[in-house]
Design a protein around this nucleic acid. Structure first.
Lengths: 150, 150
DNA sequence: TTTTGTGCAAATTGTTTGCAACACG
DNA sequence: CGTGTTGCAAACAATTTGCACAAAA
């Protein structure tokens, strides 16, 4: 079942809240901004500004500025999975944290609470209140770890 | 008690091993390379290539290349504490991992084993074999956390 | 019709590459 | 002496800034 481009219910269904939030803060919903939001919405993993600007044929500047604005207003965040550009994701469903496999490139988003026990350990041991938000937790995923065990 | 610049026992005492390792691999100990090693040795926290090149009045290119070479040969590593340039440290006393306070900028180096329990938790829960080596563990240190509690 | 946001150009930061001259071993 | 290393220039990647014009509200 194909949906006409004018409708795109999936996208607009949940972006509505985001857009409302924008408007309340005096931000406008320009075409580029809407496109950026949609691109983030349909992405299944964090994406770079350049990926967005290429796919949408938008000026990178505009993409960067939009991402920055959206981030400043709490709708978007960025992470670093490894080297390379910052990667952006929507912040609609609560704050995820990322596990990144440096061998196969797998990215697992996990809800922040899933790492509470880990954070608790670090707090006990070192007194640090950890935020895994900005940097991914880097390592090798189960599959890749096993491949190199034998 | 001041030590004459020709002696510098502290620096050369432990760098000797590193230098020996270099020689065995056919690497030379040029003046810039020795200076870079010394700069890393006396640094009390990871430093950027630019900091090194400025302080030593060396060409940044040379510093970057030396750091890369030394890293490739296991004498040096780099970390990211937050945004900004990569930061380099000697790898003489085993692999430290870093806790970085994003509020006050404090950097705590802890021996990798100190985080074994944390790694264990992540392994259990997500199957990931974590390396905190490349990205620091970012958060707020005890002091800064308490300041914002009341 | 007033801001806010856009696109283009150019600057900035961090880092890498090419190459002729240099110097460690 | 010969190859690893240097310094300089230039390229490169990621991002930011300045500014006149366009377009949301």
């Amino acid at each position: 079942m194909t949906v006409s481009p004018e409708t795109r219910p999936l996208v607009f269904a949940t972006l509505t809240d985001a857009v409302a939030a924008l408007r309340q803060r005096g931000l406008r919903l320009s075409t580029p901004r809407r496109l950026v939001l949609e691109a983030l919405f349909v992405a299944d993993r964090p994406v770079s500004a350049e990926q967005i600007s290429e796919r949408l044929k938008l000026d990178p500047t505009s993409v960067y500025r939009n991402l920055e604005t959206l981030e400043r207003h709490g709708l978007v965040r960025h992470v670093h999975l490894g080297h390379g550009p910052g990667l952006y994701a929507l912040l609609l469903h609560g704050e995820d944290e990322y596990l990144f496999c440096e061998r196969c490139g797998a990215v697992s988003a996990v809800p922040a609470e899933a790492l509470d026990a880990v954070r608790e350990r670090v707090r006990e041991r070192f007194g640090y209140e950890v935020h895994f938000a900005h940097f991914a937790i880097v390592g090798t995923c189960r599959t890749c770890s096993q491949e190199h065990q034998p």
